[in-house]
Design a protein around this nucleic acid. Structure first.
Length: 183
DNA sequence: GAAAAGATCTGCT
DNA sequence: GCAGATCTTTTCG
């Protein structure tokens, strides 16, 4: 297990880049993180931009914790908290563990889409509001850094309506598991 | 108290 | 490629 306290005590942009290639396991299922997005304190697209609310209180808490929120009333999205009021959205994984469980939770679908997208990822790993605020340093979470520094793609974030020009989306170069291709 | 927007996914055309 | 599903949170009156 790596030094999570030090790892997450940086800007979300740095953490988002550093997370690419890291293996995330949650309760026996998971895979390699291939796509992330950074949300900064002074970022109009971030939930934390308009101050603390009941939903976003976790984002203002200590680093190295999970922030889970409901999206579009249907999906769950998993974030890692960095320095207070900033976080990294985990958008896609390359599955490596617990494939049968994830396939069962996701139902019949294209294998490539098992964890390709924040909503799909949470459904595959069975993550919901109960995991909001949990520390990443202990089970059921497990993070393992890559043996070698990966090649990283950079692009603009997806699905937002503000600050759309900031290049804060990161991906593993050449991965077929990203939710949308990098150009 | 009411209304609108939202860090999305799926299915159909 | 586009619209619908679906509901929580936040903002406005």
């Amino acid at each position: 297990m790596m030094d999570l306290q030090k790892f997450f005590d940086r800007s979300s942009v740095e953490v988002a880049r550093a997370l690419i290639g890291t293996e995330l396991i949650f309760g026996g299922a998971g895979g390699i993180i291939v796509e992330t997005e950074a949300y900064e304190p002074d970022d109009p697209a971030s939930h934390s931009f308009r101050g603390v609310t009941p939903r976003t209180r976790t984002m203002f808490g200590p680093p190295a914790h999970a922030y889970v929120y409901r999206s579009y009333g249907i999906h769950w999205c998993l974030n890692f908290v960095c320095r207070p009021s900033s976080a990294v959205l985990i958008r896609a994984l390359q599955p490596t563990s617990g494939l049968p469980e994830m396939e069962e939770r996701r139902g019949k679908t294209d294998p490539l889409l098992l964890c390709s997208g924040p909503g799909r990822l949470c459904q595959a790993l069975a993550i919901s509001a109960e995991q909001d605020g949990l520390p990443l340093s202990q089970p059921p979470f497990s993070l393992t850094p890559p043996p070698l520094p990966p090649i990283i793609d950079v692009g603009t974030r997806i699905g937002i309506s503000k600050a759309m020009d900031r290049p804060w989306r990161f991906g593993l170069h050449g991965s077929v598991h990203v939710s949308r291709k990098f150009v």
